[in-house]
């Protein structure tokens, strides 16, 4: 039997380029889509949208609060603004504006936060969102999507454009491991099962999906068979996939490029505590702020590697039936 990671290589293109291409494709079909930036269109990759639709793209400058409030006002007139910034500034800095100007008054604004967690790398702690998922999960009805690779952008952008409400897309901007073929299908709110197994289930999102697959390969060599779920939609959580995994495997490991408080691990624990309480181990950032370094260094520094997942899986399995 082949390894789960066989054939997975670094993508040939950057995530931001794929994202903008998907957005332009959607905007060609939907004249209501607007791009709003706060002086990072170059960084988050929306520049081609400005060339394609110069009248539908607004770079506000370094004023995130204005950008979000303006997006809310645009939505009031029927437009569908996509606001982009680095994840920390797209969420933490403008939480009240997203909460009250957008979500509270049930407007239709899409928030796109680039550089999740350690992918902020050399930008360091000030730019490293470990808390954005927790913040956005607190907003009633906010849909939260974190693609594992570029294959999902078409589905994610199409969902955001065609479904009303405040949505948060947490997205890397540089090259990432390409997990899926072009033909892969994604349903928002439904996890993708990338491997089936009965000993433990690893539930991951974003860059941690690849780490989960590597961990599953290592575990398989030890005779431990893991189910791997790509939980690309953090909210609404695919409760059925989570509870099925708990029933079938009896042990759950979550893996996220985020603080274990408030993020994917917390969401899974909350769901299971109220339904099928089985042992859970959460791989993720624990009570730490970000710092500078390569992504590789930072994944090791904050315990976000396949090795961390393997250790957590072993510990979790040992807790079964105790």
């Amino acid at each position: 039997m082949g390894r789960l990671t066989d054939g997975i290589t670094l993508d040939t293109g950057e995530m931001r380029a794929y994202y903008c291409k998907a957005l332009i494709n959607e905007a060609k079909k939907n004249g209501k889509i607007i791009v709003v930036d706060a002086d990072v269109s170059h960084s988050v990759g929306t520049e081609p949208f400005y060339a394609e639709f110069p009248d539908r793209a607004f770079d506000c400058g370094i004023m995130e609060a204005q950008a979000v409030g303006m997006s809310a006002g645009m939505s009031e007139t029927g437009l569908i603004p996509f606001f982009h910034a680095f994840g920390v500034f797209a969420t933490r800095r403008v939480f009240d504006q997203i909460f009250l100007s957008c979500a509270y008054q049930k407007l239709n604004v899409k928030i796109v936060g680039a550089d999740p967690g350690v992918t902020a790398a050399s930008n360091g702690g000030t730019h490293m969102p470990f808390e954005d998922l927790g913040l956005m999960r607190l907003i009633p009805d906010c849909v939260i999507i974190e693609p594992a690779d570029s294959a999902m952008y078409g589905a994610a952008v199409s969902y955001m454009a065609n479904n009303y409400g405040v949505h948060y897309l947490r997205t890397s901007r540089r090259k990432t491991m390409r997990i899926y073929p072009d033909s892969a299908e994604f349903v928002i709110g439904k996890a993708n099962m990338l491997a089936d197994g009965k000993d433990v289930c690893i539930i991951a999102s974003g860059i941690m999906v690849y780490e989960a697959l590597k961990a599953a390969d290592t575990l398989a060599e030890l005779g431990v068979y893991a189910r791997v779920l790509d939980m690309h939609t953090i909210k609404p959580l695919d409760i059925k996939a989570v509870t099925d995994a708990a029933k079938d495997c009896g042990a759950i490991v979550t893996a996220e490029n985020h603080n274990v408080t408030g993020g994917l691990g917390a969401a899974v624990c909350e769901a299971l505590a109220e339904s099928v309480p089985v042992p859970v181990e959460r791989v993720g950032v624990k009570e730490s702020f970000g710092e500078v370094g390569t992504q590789d260094y930072l994944q090791k520094r904050f315990g976000l590697t396949a090795e961390n997942i393997v250790s957590a899986a072993k510990k979790c399995i040992s807790r079964k039936n105790k």
Binding site: Q66, G69, M70, A72, G73, M74, S75, T77
Partner: peptide, 9 residues
């Protein structure tokens, strides 16, 4: 800010 969005919209 909301007003500017309405105006642009």
């Amino acid at each position: 800010s909301l007003g500017t969005g309405v105006a642009i919209g």
